[in-house]
Computed example of a mutant assay.
Amino acid sequence: MRIVSLAALLLAAPLLAQMPTTPPGSRNPAAVTAGTYAADPNHTLVTWTVDHMGFTPYTGIFGDVTGTLTLDPRNLAATKVDVTIPVSKVTTASSGLTAHLTRPAASGGKPDFFGADMTARFVSTRVVVAGQKATVTGDLTLNGVTRPVTLAAEFYGAGTAPAQMGGKANVGFHATATIRRSEFGLGFAVPIVSDAVKLDIAAGFMKQ
């Protein structure tokens, strides 16, 4: 095992030596460049939290997000976001619960927690900017139901990734929102498991 670990370290050493010594991302919004960006599926995470029986909060994660962001620093109100979230790839700290969240109910019925359509899509309709923060209103489609949702978003950082990681311009945001499961026809176990779902979103985009 030690020999394998040493070999892996030796192979990685040249790459590590070429990595920047400071983070390439900047909190300065001047680092943002105009254009169309693709969601970074490896670094865009939608974390959700529900109340479990009044005892504890419980958290899971959606990843592998795809979609686009179009923005121009000179006209931020015209920003457009269109992302798709694969609900079927939900992850929790419990393998048993993860399986429960994604398996159909008995006798071929609908799944307990999520509907037959195991994807979600958010398309922005309005962006109001105040400094480095923005209110992003859009349509969320989940379980075949489309309803308006508002995100409280904040600029996180921008810059150019190292050449070893693609060398593309990146931009990232942090956002929060709260939705109600029942409004999307997903009210299983309410109120034992809370209807309200808190969303905490880390959104990364790479310029195309």
Rank of each mutant, 00 (worst) to 15 (best):
P14A: 09
T92E: 11
P191E: 07
L186N: 05
G131W: 04
V87M: 05
T84Y: 01
G109A: 08
L16Q: 08
K80H: 12
T160G: 05
G144H: 09
G25R: 03
D51H: 03
A78N: 11
G63Y: 00
P104N: 13
A177P: 08
W48I: 07
A12V: 12
A31E: 12
H174V: 11
G138S: 09
S88M: 09
R103F: 02
N75E: 11
R103I: 13
L45C: 00
L142V: 12
G157D: 08
Y37E: 06
V87F: 06
K89V: 02
D195S: 03
T102I: 15
F155C: 07
T44K: 02
P23I: 02
L9R: 06
Y156T: 13
L76M: 14
G115Q: 09
Q132D: 14
A134K: 10
H174N: 11
G131A: 05
R180D: 12
T21F: 02
H52D: 00
S88R: 15
V32H: 01
A202F: 01
T36M: 03
G138K: 08
G159N: 09
I61M: 08
T160E: 13
A169I: 00
D200P: 01
T22F: 02
V197E: 01
L69N: 04
K89E: 14
P20C: 05
D200L: 01
V193H: 03
F205E: 01
G185F: 11
L10N: 01
T146C: 06
G115V: 10
T36W: 00
